[in-house]
Design a protein around this nucleic acid. Structure first.
Lengths: 232, 232
DNA sequence: ATTGCTATTATGTCGCTACATAATAAGTCA
DNA sequence: TGACTTATTATGTAGCGACATAATAGCAAT
């Protein structure tokens, strides 16, 4: 009899329901953890865990002494999983192919330096490559690699190994920044991806850092129709 | 003396560093929580919290009895915060404007029904609107609203209130699906957004549900140059 | 050999206590 | 009155113990 147990998730769901049902409105103050624990007949640590989860999901705000409040400005928070391109293709049942297009040391444009947080202009290694699914262009990547922080890359034969896979295995990062946007395909991109010039491309741009030191910046131009899906 | 304390975050960082530095390779098994707790001189619950965080960030996998392993296929996980358009504009210091373009009951295309999980074809309420920043088109939204699950919407004057804001305040959702992609502007979109036909638009498509019952599907066509930024 | 029960192992969850920390309010002394 | 100290309040973090649960291994009966 009685209910089986009070898990922190059930507490979270209950509080969330209260908020979503409007029993607590944006800006309202929620009961203290201790009180809630008593009414729900559980320990405060259980409530605390539930509340922390709601903070992470962006529904509430908590301040010491100030208490817990429903966020005034709700935000929708979603999680994106970005897989390695090879796996993304293989796991969808298609055959993966990789092709190095060019590899050279070059002076990056200011925008690239800015995104990597580099102040003094310096040449970087640029590697362009194509990921193929069943032999057809799937993602074109334009990559800038910091030779200063990753000198080992110069000894790797990127003709066969994707820089991405090498870096993932050999150069861990502690932080990264993602930028998502749309761009028209220019002449050379269109040619390499076998699409029409002017087609709308979804671009995933990722800059990785290790301890604030830049490692690499990669722009992935995806085939028209590509979608990134996220769920709550 | 001795070190001050062992926080679960310090444990997490330590384990993460071990993995990133290659002391544990993909697929390797990590020590049991209990052992780790002993060597680090802390409680198992502290280790457990640290490990759970690493699971959430996609670095490791845990299975009861099976133990903790470094994920073989690393995934990059990022969190996106999607704010209400009005706030996004206001917080960037620009003036927000809203304009209803059209409002009518219509038969949605199959793709819309599919994304909302509706099997039997039925008319939905369609509301198109424009969000303006400093008087210029910023986001064009094309929205389908389930009148069956949200009949109250028909009594709201959407000429002045954005359907988005009304729904957020009055119709909570428990789950949503996000789709991000790029699309060429067609003639009418281009006209409404005051851009050129064929321009590459970044599209944010969101379907919200309450308890698996569909509420609304909205496609937000963003002004060229729009970027979505996520950080770890 | 196959099925079924039991033991083992490692993680998952929860309660309780204790102390830390941040924010604020109240009080105190010059 | 103003600056400093102290108390209060509510959340944050950690420890420890206990039991739950899932996955596996081992053993036993047929």
């Amino acid at each position: 009899m009685a209910e089986r147990k009070t898990t922190w998730k059930s507490v979270r769901d209950r509080v969330r329901d209260d908020i979503l049902a409007g029993r607590f409105k944006p800006g309202d103050r929620l009961p203290r953890d201790a009180d809630l624990a008593e009414t729900l007949n559980c320990a405060r640590s259980t409530v605390q865990r539930a509340m922390q989860d709601l903070v992470d999901s962006g529904l509430i705000e908590r301040r010491r002494k100030g208490g817990t409040h429903v966020r005034r400005e709700p935000i929708a928070r979603a999680t994106l999983d970005i897989r390695v391109t090879r796996l993304e293709i293989e796991q969808s049942g298609r055959e993966y192919g990789y092709q190095l297009i060019s590899l050279e040391e070059a002076a990056p444009p200011a925008s690239v330096l800015a995104k990597l947080g580099i102040t003094a202009p310096r040449p970087l290694l640029r590697a362009d490559a194509l990921h193929l699914a069943d032999g057809r262009p799937y993602i074109l990547e334009e990559r800038w690699i910091c030779t200063q922080t990753t000198p080992e890359i110069s000894q790797v034969d990127l003709t066969w190994i994707s820089a991405n896979e090498w870096l993932i295995k050999n150069k861990p990062y502690s932080r990264y920044e993602l930028r998502l946007y749309a761009q028209k395909a220019n002449a050379s991109t269109a040619r390499q991806m076998e699409i029409k010039r002017g087609d709308a491309l979804f671009v995933i741009e990722r800059a990785t850092f290790e301890d604030e030191r830049p490692i690499t910046l990669v722009k992935s131009f995806t085939q028209p129709g590509y979608q990134l899906v996220a769920t709550t």
